[in-house]
């Protein structure tokens, strides 16, 4: 298990070597409700930190998933396209969205750790 970091857009990033796996948090999936559609970037695509990298839609609404860091997509979780509800069932595990090859690991420095994110979410209520 690598380090897991969190963004204030409710994404998580798990770093293993220079590969970062990205998904949305349990709080995010709970806020969205039943996920019915996921749109993912293609392998090879470059994504910029803070820009739209994927789309996740619930029954009610569409939301953007922003790239939490700059990098190149090495893999997208195609299983989500067929089973979008996996995002609800296992957001931090099988519900991952994409793996990125990081351009600059220092971009992770400003992100929250698990305890920090937990506090952040509690502050939203």
């Amino acid at each position: 298990m690598g380090t897991v970091k969190f963004t204030d857009e409710h994404e998580w990033i798990r770093l293993e070597g220079d590969i970062a796996t990205v998904g949305i948090t349990d709080y995010a999936q709970n806020q969205l409700g039943d996920v019915v559609y996921v749109e993912l970037p293609k392998p090879g695509q470059k994504v910029e930190k803070g820009t739209q990298a994927a789309v996740v839609e619930s029954v009610k609404a569409a939301s953007e998933v922003f790239a939490p860091v700059t990098g190149e997509v090495v893999e997208a979780n195609q299983a989500l396209v067929d089973e979008p509800a996996t995002v609800n069932a296992d957001p931090m595990g099988r519900g991952w969205f994409m793996k990125l090859r990081l351009a600059d690991k220092s971009q992770l420095d400003g992100l929250m750790d698990e305890a920090g994110y937990k506090k952040f979410v509690e502050g939203l209520h």
């Binding site: 019915v36 559609y37 749109e39 839609e57 609404a61 569409a62 396209v81 979008p84």
Partner: peptide, 9 residues
């Protein structure tokens, strides 16, 4: 009726 799975809002 959209083809595919993408909802149109």
């Amino acid at each position: 009726l959209p083809e595919g799975r993408a909802p149109a809002r």
